[in-house]
Lab assay of single mutants.
Amino acid sequence: MEVRTIKVFTTVDNINLHTQVVDMSMTYGQQFGPTYLDGADVTKIKPHNSHEGKTFYVLPNDDTLRVEAFEYYHTTDPSFLGRYMSALNHTKKWKYPQVNGLTSIKWADNNCYLATALLTLQQIELKFNPPALQDAYYRARAGEAANFCALILAYCNKTVGELGDVRETMSYLFQHANLDSCKRVLNVVCKTCGQQQTTLKGVEAVMYMGTLSYEQFKKGVQIPCTCGKQATKYLVQQESPFVMMSAPPAQYELKHGTFTCASEYTGNYQCGHYKHITSKETLYCIDGALLTKSSEYKGPITDVFYKENSYTTTIK
């Protein structure tokens, strides 16, 4: 009895394709271990004539594949690729409408935090270190965002349907971005203890939790000093293409032309909904596939993004 075979390709990165001759009487799992086709788990399936010449994702289970996976995804987590594939199996079914010149995501599976993050990423200057993220990001900007969303979920250790947080998501993504040249110098002034300067680099240099107003941050924000008295913390120097200011959701007025974009969060910790506000020729609110415009805006804002380049204080 002759062994019926077909020729397929296996890959971990969709760049390096490895030619395989597979036995049609055995499952993919018996031949390769966990195997995925377009995100779908085909591990328990036997090869079919229609699979001839198709590319299958496999887990990096030998040295060659491990090197290829690390170079593309910059992670050695053995569960990463499987999590990416199972997320992709959902995100490829989502709709990605162009809204006001940006790629958004039609609401499904509690994905409003991903839509808000995706919209924000198209408006701030950011370059990702893992080629996987950078490639998928370019495709997302062009309207094909399924891979990018699935990668975000995998890097953030999230599953489809789980509630997510924009600030946490951005923080994970910033860790995989090139923020080497970003720098922030802060000064804390206390009447009792004097003053202390701190220099922050990388992710810490672009994120701040405690106030939404970048102007206020430049002037000074009140913080408790270690001595128990009130101290003032203010920005001395900022070198970065953008800054992200966050605070627990509270009524906040966004003035046209003073910011790049913002995240609105309605609801409580267990259950809520994100919308995205962007400042173009007027203010726009993007909620999944829905767009509304207004000249002014007041609502429960939790993150505001500002364009920056270089700032030095005039406070002496």
Rank of each mutant, 00 (worst) to 15 (best):
Q238D: 02
L133W: 02
L173A: 02
T27S: 09
L151M: 07
G82L: 14
G143R: 03
Q123R: 04
T35G: 06
K219H: 08
A262C: 01
K316P: 15
A136C: 06
V188M: 09
T91R: 04
K7W: 10
E281M: 01
G164W: 05
G29R: 06
C182I: 02
E168N: 09
M244K: 06
F148C: 04
N187E: 12
T232K: 08
H256E: 12
P249M: 02
K54Q: 14
L118F: 11
S104A: 10
Y155V: 02
L126D: 05
Y252T: 15
D13H: 03
V188G: 05
V22W: 04
T258V: 06
F148P: 02
L212V: 11
N187G: 09
S25R: 12
S240Q: 01
N178K: 11
L283V: 14
C112H: 03
T116N: 08
G272T: 01
N49P: 14
M245L: 09
Q270E: 12
C112T: 03
N16D: 06
Y234A: 06
R4T: 12
Y252R: 01
N14Q: 13
D77Y: 04
D23T: 11
F305R: 00
A177T: 10
N147L: 05
C112L: 01
Y208P: 00
E253M: 09
E162I: 02
T5A: 13
D62M: 06
L153S: 03
Q98P: 06
V12F: 06
L102E: 06
M245K: 00
R66H: 09
E253L: 08
Y265R: 04
E71M: 07
H74F: 06
V185E: 04
D38C: 10
L235T: 03
Y57F: 13
V42P: 03
T116G: 07
H18D: 07
K316I: 14
Q31V: 15
C112E: 04
G210P: 04
T19A: 12
N268A: 15
E125P: 11
K218T: 06
T159M: 12
F259C: 00
I124F: 06
R167V: 02
E308I: 11
V99T: 09
A250Y: 08
C112R: 04
N14P: 06
Q196F: 13
V160W: 03
D38W: 10
T35N: 04
S263F: 01
K95E: 15
L283W: 02
C182M: 03
N110S: 03
E253F: 08
R83D: 05
